Amino acid sequence: MRTFDYLRAENTTTAITEAAKPETRFLAGGTTLLDLMKLNVERPAHLVDITRLPGLDTIEISPDVIRIGALAKMSKVAAHADIIEAAPVLSESLWRAASAQLRNMASIGGNLMQRTRCTYFRDPGAYSNCNKRNPGSGCAALEGINRNHAVLGTSDACIAISPGDFAVSLVAFDASVLVRGTVERRIPIDDFYLLPGQTPHLEHQLSSGEMIIGVEIPRVAALKQSHYLKVRDRASYEFAAASAAVGIEFESDGKTVRDVRIAVGGVATKPWRLRAVEDALKGRPIDEATLRTAAAAAVDGARSSGRNGFKIELTPKVVARALMTVGEISHDTEERFRT
């Protein structure tokens, strides 16, 4: 680990000013940053501790919007009674992530900024060819062990997967990231994360000297009837093989879809909104035939790199199962989607 300077900021103005200096990183829970520093992936010269900044750990719920401060702990948000009632998908995506110990330490802002778990990215000693870490060096994962890599949003420069769960639920429900620097900005979450293209080292829209101060989620009707399904190789403390954040608002008949929100994780280079699937479901009843046809569009444009091809078959099934849970479709139908 590189030697670094440490400063505990007492206010956001100081934090932002210090963060504008070269080779500086913010430190909140540290559950991702410190790991990457130990691996010599992140090598900051300066750390600005923002854990004591006032007013950034609040959770506010109004009739129109949910606002969560960037320093709110994952565990606090997941267990918040009003969040569970108004937006179950947010709670579920948080408590299905990481371990209890990590959720108690990790902040919401830090969670949004976590970086990929690609083995080649995280091992600079063994693999110099990683465009995300060393631009222009190549991508070791393309010809390597890539079972856990992305099939959507990839390029010939990078197939590293976006690892988050909470961000998937935010993308499904049109959340905004609130950012403060010399000015304050509101960035739609779907625009906040960048596709790798030929510049996979550029992962988000934050500029030097900017910090996340919170997220806002509009309280649409589908948010209340929502669910986060995470399929993984083991039952806990594991990243998703595929996941889906979904929500449905029905017409007055209780069967016809008025509004539906769907995003997937574990399969793409950023949290991935499925607007084509949404469009195929709106105005139609949630039945098996409709689900099979609509869910197939979940992997439009998907590309296998070899060992990760199973995700192309898995993803539509995960989407369908999540929708069936929200739509209260029969157990027999759900079982047919497992095979």
Results as ranks from 00 to 15, higher is better:
Gly136Thr: 01
Val77Leu: 09
Tyr120Cys: 03
Tyr120Lys: 09
Pro163Gln: 05
Gly144Met: 02
Arg67Ala: 14
Lys76Cys: 12
Asn104Ala: 15
Arg133Ile: 09
Ala106Arg: 02
Ala140Tyr: 14
Gly109Glu: 11
Ser137Phe: 10
Asp123Gly: 02
Arg133Tyr: 03
Glu92Pro: 04
Trp95Gly: 04
Gly125Ile: 07
Gly164Lys: 00
Ser169Gln: 02
Ser62Cys: 07
Tyr127Phe: 15
Ala141Met: 13
Leu71Asp: 13
Leu112Phe: 02
Thr58Ile: 07
Asn146Ala: 07
Ala157Thr: 11
Arg117Asp: 07
Ser137Gln: 14
Asn131Leu: 10
Asn131Phe: 01
Met105Arg: 11
Ile161Tyr: 05
Thr116Trp: 04
Gly69Asp: 10
Ala160Cys: 15
Val48Arg: 05
Arg122Asn: 11
Gly110Cys: 03
Ile59Arg: 03
Val168Gln: 00
Thr58Tyr: 07
Leu152Val: 00
Leu90Met: 06
Arg96Met: 14
Ile66Gln: 05
Arg115Ser: 11
Ser62Tyr: 10
Arg52Gly: 10
Ala157Gly: 05
Pro63Ile: 09
Arg122Ser: 07
Ala86Met: 13
Ser169Met: 00
Asp156His: 12
Ala81Val: 15
Ser99Met: 08
Thr154Pro: 04
Leu112Ser: 08
Ala140Thr: 15
Ser93Trp: 05
Pro124Arg: 00
Val77Lys: 03
Asp82Ile: 11
Thr154His: 12
Cys130Gly: 08
Met74Trp: 03
Arg103Thr: 04
Asn131Cys: 04
Ala98Glu: 12
Leu53Met: 01
Glu85Thr: 15
Ala157Gln: 13
Arg122Pro: 02
Ser155Thr: 11
Ala78Lys: 01
Thr58Trp: 05
Ala97Met: 13
Pro124Glu: 00
Ala78Val: 01
Asn129Arg: 14
Arg103Met: 13
Ser162Pro: 02
Met74Pro: 03
Ile161Val: 15
Leu47Gly: 12
Val89Asn: 02
Ser128Leu: 14
Val65Trp: 05
Val77Thr: 08
Arg133Thr: 01
Ser155Asp: 09
His46Tyr: 15
Cys139Arg: 02
Ala70Glu: 06
Asp165Gln: 00
Asp156Met: 07
Ala167Tyr: 02
Asp64Asn: 14
Arg96Asn: 14
Asp64Lys: 15
Ala78Glu: 14
Ser99His: 04
Ala100Ile: 07
Met105Pro: 00
Thr119Met: 13
Ala97Ile: 10
Asn148Ala: 13
Ser169Cys: 02
Ala78Asp: 02
Glu92Lys: 11
Asp156Val: 12
Leu71Tyr: 03
Met105Leu: 14
Ile145Ala: 06
Asn104Pro: 07
Gly110Phe: 00
Ala126Tyr: 07
Pro135Ser: 03
Glu60Leu: 12
Asp57Lys: 12
Gly144Gln: 11
Ser99Lys: 05
Leu102Met: 08
Pro163Ile: 09
Ala79Lys: 11
Cys130Ala: 06
Asn131Met: 06
Asn148Val: 07
Asn146Glu: 06
Ile159Lys: 09
Ile145Val: 05
Ala87Gly: 05
Ile59Thr: 12
Val151Pro: 01
Gly136Ser: 01
Ser162Ala: 15
Leu170Ser: 04
Ile68Ser: 07
Gly125Lys: 00
Asp156Phe: 11
Glu60Tyr: 09
Ile50Tyr: 04
Ile59Asp: 08
Ala140Met: 14
Lys73Met: 10
His80Asp: 15
Pro163Tyr: 04
Thr51Lys: 14
Arg147Asn: 04
Asn111Ala: 12
Ala70Asn: 00
Ser137Ala: 15
Phe121Trp: 08
